[in-house]
Design a protein around this nucleic acid. Structure first.
Lengths: 334, 334
DNA sequence: ATGAAAGCGCTAACAG
DNA sequence: CTGTTAGCGCTTTCAT
């Protein structure tokens, strides 16, 4: 079954190669009669265009890269899923690349594009610094996701982390919790942690509460287990809190499990809030109150900007914020 | 920054295009001196090979497609993650395609390959029938995952679902549970459901228990919520059971949540076993006993077979089984 | 409206 | 060990 080529179809239809090409790509300048004749030959031979050849000729790959830490993290899986759908709208396919939080891999993401594999990269870096990104970017069409400060030339979409963190903390305050702890790992993404911490502190101060450094629960390991361990360690060293705001949902789930294991009730003794609204937050015991970023808007905004870049827009980097809301569930009462 | 080509490097280094090509691809037949000279030119110009052109010339894309229902399902996310790593070993990249359980999409997976985008497809179908797969396959390098009966020409890797279901049921029996229910949705993948049901019934019969049709809990919707609803419905119609074997972990988590919500204890009143050993099973309340397929072996076996197919092996389809084991957690007592 | 010819950048015979 | 010559299959001027 040696691949059938444009020429084969042209021969069978008795027209030139060019005409077949026009028919296949639905270009104008072909008479209906010719079109029909060619179409029949295409069907008969089962012709399918060779994308690689088309790419070489057009210089367009029809492929976008989505690079983030880890496809196994539910939040990223959700982003991937949405991006797949969004890319399809523009007739683009998505190539996923996992950085595993390694600066080395993040660097490779920006360098790889020269391989001509993709037309653009949508990238959520966690380790790479702004200066490095600017350095490596070159003329790559790049859109960044998340909180890392992008270089001036790079488009960027995120949610307002400070405001959202404030919302989460305020919710805990509203529910009557007074001593609220903040659980995070600097290892994940320190600039984002800083923003959420700022929002958390700001909410406390507005309520007349001075943030207690003792209630900043830093995790040793940026994992679900690490979250549980950090909470238990805090309890053991005598830290007292009745509210817990977690950097992400998995940390919150790990923390809730650890709390319940040492006999504390959620939300009875401690109210817990997570971040991301991953699917599992609806099924954890108790279900988890969380900050839900508008992932749909994030993905569609990113793709829109990407398409503009690909089409040639070469202006200064645009910084867009998308919405979020707090979803209240059992972990903060009902 | 107009892309620098092989010829540009050749000009600068003062050698032929072919020699540069040899240096870039680390081929032999190049003197160390020349190699060094060329390398310097490559570095100076920042030359990076154009993959598209290379593909067109070699006919090899260096890309594999992984097609399955849904990247957001934790089990598939795990498979994807492992496959990414495994593919990298062979210098292949992975293109993910979600079928969303639609036969139409599954058909497209098998047809798309002609686009020449990928060298092979690793495919977990749930809706497509064997005959259709055989029809559409053509000369595509294909390896199938999961329980669908593959055509004679197609390679296939799976775990022994009947034996594993038997193991799960036996475990419940061993823990003293007598009336064990089976929770599944025919909609997910009916042939797999049948196999697991067979294993479940076989374990019961060996224990001298006649399977009670009343304890086959069929879900209306193949979702986590659907699992909870099915369990509650069964309880309401008076079904009595003290053990529950679930088609997958998410269903088990949904079921456990529903059971606890109506005041039943897990494992006190009802022992629960899931399937897949997704990460969340370690953090659910209670943590979930589950069947853990050897995903690593599955992925490496699939890739090995794929590489053989790509290299030209054209024999009959090979059917490989990989291992599994039962991981005991709190949902069946400690 | 259709056809002929010239590449896209690279690899792969085949000479030298 | 190095250089020359054809393509890979498609798109795209430029004629016709």
């Amino acid at each position: 079954m040696p691949a059938v080529r444009l020429q084969d179809v042209a021969d069978l239809a008795g027209v030139s190669l060019k005409t077949v090409s026009n028919v296949v790509r639905n270009k104008p300048h072909v008479s209906p009669a010719t079109r029909k004749k060619v179409q029949r030959a295409v069907d008969e031979l089962g012709y399918v265009p060779n994308m690689t050849a088309r790419r070489l000729a057009t210089g367009r790959t029809g492929m976008l890269e989505l690079a983030f830490p880890d496809i196994q993290a539910p939040y990223y899986a959700e982003i991937a899923s949405r991006m797949f759908d969004e890319a399809k709208k523009y007739d683009y396919r998505l190539l996923i690349e996992q950085t595993r939080n390694l600066a080395e891999n993040e660097r490779a993401v920006l360098a790889d594009r020269e391989q001509g594999l993709v037309d653009g990269v949508i990238f959520e870096p966690v380790s790479l610094e702004t200066s490095q990104i600017a350095l490596l970017k070159g003329d790559l069409s790049l859109v960044m996701l998340g909180e890392v400060e992008p270089p001036l030339t790079v488009d960027h979409v995120a949610i307002d982390n400070i405001a959202a963190a404030k919302t989460a903390t305020q919710h805990l305050l509203d529910r009557g919790h007074k001593r609220i702890a903040f659980l995070a790992s600097e290892e994940v993404n320190s600039s984002t942690v800083k923003r959420r911490l700022a929002g958390y502190e700001s909410a406390l101060r507005e309520a007349g509460i001075e943030p207690d450094p003792d209630l900043y629960l830093a995790m040793e390991k940026p994992t679900t287990d690490g979250a549980g361990e950090a909470v238990v360690a805090a309890l053991e060293r005598g830290a007292e809190f009745d509210g817990l705001f977690c950097y992400n949902d998995m940390f919150a789930i790990g923390a809730m499990r650890a709390l319940q294991q040492v006999g504390l009730q959620v939300p009875g003794d401690i109210g817990v809030v997570g971040w991301n609204d991953i699917t599992m937050t609806r099924y954890s015991m108790p279900s988890l109150t969380t900050i839900a970023p508008d992932v749909n808007a994030m993905c569609s905004t990113a793709l829109t900007m990407m398409m503009e870049r690909i089409k040639g827009y070469d202006g200064i980097g645009r910084h867009k914020l998308v919405g979020y809301h707090l979803v209240q569930r059992e972990s903060t009462g009902i």
